[in-house]
């Protein structure tokens, strides 16, 4: 409906009192003038970013464990599942970073193209954001988006070196990355939840009932 497009843009230009065609460069500097040069106001904390990340993650009902190497992630996953009615079948993301994981023999590990058959999903986060304890995942063949939402148990692998303080750091990093933005870029902060029944918080609404982070020290 391209006439609707012209009508709407025309009405906007009239409302704004535009005479000539707008100038993108002038708009950019107008934004600068309106918003200022400094970064947005944001949370502050004492101590290191990793500790802040862990603390916020816990506050959002997420759990975490730290392991010394990528190889050890398998053991950590097995330990986590052993304490839960989660079985031994693991659907891991194809992310090559996870190829270095040593999976214990009693786990059945499948490389997943999506999350449809997964009760337990393992994905890798590109970054952790300390300001809110959030994990940043980029969808793509390495980390299918649905693997983060369909499993009951979602386990995310994150290198401690990938923990950054704020949103702004995530954007600065991602703008350098090929293929950004992906179709779906997900900030995940704890397991799925709802308060739609009498304002009572209940975990496991539609997405994962639990979220566990394996921090790989680097």
């Amino acid at each position: 409906m391209s006439d609707a497009r012209e009508r709407i843009l025309g009405r906007i230009r009239t409302a704004l009192g535009r005479e000539g065609p707008p100038d993108a460069e002038a708009t950019r500097s107008a934004r600068q003038a309106a918003v200022g040069d400094g970064p947005s106001q944001r949370p502050e904390w004492q101590g290191d970013d990793l500790a802040r990340f862990q603390q916020c993650l816990e506050a959002a009902a997420g759990t975490w464990v730290a392991v010394p190497s990528m190889a050890e992630v398998g053991r950590a996953v097995a330990d986590y599942l052993a304490e839960r009615p989660a079985g031994t079948a693991v659907h891991r993301a194809p992310d090559p970073a996870l190829d270095a994981v040593d999976w214990p023999d009693h786990l059945t590990v499948e490389t997943a193209r999506d999350g449809r058959a997964a009760l337990v999903g393992v994905s890798r986060a590109l970054a952790g954001m300390a300001e809110t304890g959030s994990l940043a995942l980029a969808s793509g063949p390495d980390n299918p988006a649905t693997l983060a939402f369909l499993p009951d148990y979602h386990i995310i692998v994150l290198r401690t070196a990938d923990v950054v303080p704020w949103f702004e750091d995530i954007w600065a990093r991602m703008r350098q990355t090929d293929g950004f933005p992906p179709r779906s870029f997900n900030f995940i902060t704890g397991p799925s939840r709802t308060a739609d029944v009498e304002q009572t918080l209940q975990l496991g609404a539609h997405g994962p009932r639990s979220l566990h982070v394996v921090l790989v020290e680097t």
Partner: peptide, 19 residues
């Protein structure tokens, strides 16, 4: 922050396996 804050850009890319 809510549990899920998602940035969606376009449809699935050629190599994507879902979306």
């Amino acid at each position: 922050m809510t549990a899920y804050t998602t940035m969606v850009t376009g449809p699935r890319r050629a190599p994507d396996t879902d979306g």
